[in-house]
């Protein structure tokens, strides 16, 4: 671990910091990602639906 910390800044990020050592920060990040993906999927489905109705109107 001490040898690892002598390498570059990016590799230091793999070293365990306090909050990461409890593993809980990954849970938080994952929850945030899941929420965002849910919002995104909802937006995309709305887009599809609105697009289909607009196309129907244009074709009439």
């Amino acid at each position: 671990m001490i040898l690892l910390s002598k390498l570059s800044a990016v590799i230091w990020m793999l070293d365990v910091d306090f909050l990461r050592s409890t593993g809980k920060i990954y849970t938080v990040a994952l929850v945030a990602l899941v929420v965002w993906i849910a919002v995104l999927v909802y937006l995309l489905r709305l887009e599809k639906w609105v697009k289909s109705i607009e196309d129907q109107i244009k074709s009439k």
């Binding site: 990020m13 920060i25 938080v28 990040a29 990602l33 697009k51």
Partner: peptide, 27 residues
């Protein structure tokens, strides 16, 4: 897949970056 405007793609790409960087970069 729905055809999306270019600026909507910016949001789709930026948000995971913000979430991952925001939570995983150590203090």
């Amino acid at each position: 897949m729905v055809k999306l405007s270019w600026w909507k793609w910016i949001f789709i790409l930026l948000m995971p970056y913000v979430i991952l960087m925001g939570f995983l970069v150590p203090l």
